[in-house]
Write a protein that binds this DNA or RNA. Structure first.
Lengths: 200, 200
DNA sequence: AAATGACCGATTCAATTGATTTGGTCATTT
DNA sequence: AAATGACCAAATCAATTGAATCGGTCATTT
């Protein structure tokens, strides 16, 4: 629930926190279960008491991040301000939120695109979740009379796809390592443009 | 000038055409000067009569593509139709144009992001050129009263950056190999959204 | 019951080495 | 003058192989 503290409440938490740090810094392949256990201050075997294996740890970590990001998104939707401001908040919660969690690490790509042996496609799951959130937000805004989708000639799904493409493309900020500040600025521009397009 | 024919007028053309085919299919590293010469139907040494080396061939090919794409962009700007339609045409000329030239090859990334030993940063050059074209188009449309940049609260450069990010992001169409048709559809959505945002 | 860490087989790494390929040159041919 | 292709040194590749690492298990300890 709360932002994960440096010191963790349960052992499972400690494992996930350690995994978060190490996977983000070194990537999935170059992080061993032993590393995670050591970072969490427990023995290697203990990890297997809480998770079915390395991949399960990764998936649990990803699920936790996704859940936390969704909570942040809820807050952004419920916040005050106009449609454009809340849309910016939603995009920041979704995209900058994940960005913050995984850092500007080079391993972001590997983390989200690696096809892990079994289990659901992680990147696809994030994609579907994000699409759903944005579509829901847009439709709610339309119902509230804050936005007019018809004005753009596109439906909510098409707008969501465009927003997501823009957010994805903004991450590759060209020349030089990605910078959180410019990334957020890009998201703000996308939100502003969309809000203008949907003004009733 | 004309669309490059299968058979080439000059030897330099033949070399560039061969390079285009091979670089696109196999990438820069896995294409040898000898391959290019053979594909062009000339001897290896002849390549060095027209270009200073492998990298020079690559840069000339890239320059030719960029020039051709700019011509297509000129046509799209001058075409009939409303602001939104022409913006879509410009984006298609710039992005789908390059996409068509390099195919959906996996080597696109290598081709445009490889840091070649010496010479200008290829990807950066494309980026600057594209930015300039879009900014110019937007400003012209504003002068002609077809678009109102002020309506969005963003200036032409910011809008251009957003468009380019969206176009870049759309290329990663998630799940499955990129598909030219869906790519063009993404560009059309971006154009439609932007046109709505800038309607006077 | 909860936690540990030595242990196992499989995978990955790193260093070596010999063969092949490559970008580029240039004496020769057309 | 234009074009060729054998040639060279350097870079790359592929195969080998012995060591190190990894994910996962389980008898033992706490």
């Amino acid at each position: 629930m709360a932002e994960p503290a440096p010191e963790s409440r349960t052992k499972a938490d400690a494992i996930l926190n350690a995994a978060q740090r190490l996977f983000t810094q070194f990537g999935f392949r170059r992080t061993s279960i032993d590393d995670i256990a050591r970072e969490a201050g427990i023995a290697k075997g203990t990890v297997y008491l809480y998770f079915d294996g390395k991949e399960a740890v990764f998936r649990a970590m990803q699920a936790r991040n996704l859940a936390e990001v969704e909570v942040a998104c809820d807050l952004a939707e419920a916040a005050g301000g106009g449609f454009g401001d809340r849309l910016r908040g939603v995009l920041e919660a979704l995209y900058a939120g994940m960005y913050d969690r995984y850092g500007q690490s080079e391993h972001l790509v590997e983390l989200s695109s690696t096809r892990l042996a079994v289990g659901p496609d992680i990147a696809g799951q994030v994609d579907r979740t994000y699409t759903g959130r944005i579509v829901g937000f847009l439709n709610a805004a339309e119902r509230a009379g804050e936005a007019s989708l018809a004005a753009s000639g596109l439906d909510a799904a098409a707008i969501a796809a465009t927003l997501m493409a823009a957010a994805k493309g903004a991450k590759q900020s060209e020349s030089g390592p990605p910078d959180p500040a410019t990334y957020r600025a890009s998201l703000a521009r996308v939100a502003a443009l969309t809000a203008a397009a949907l003004r009733p």
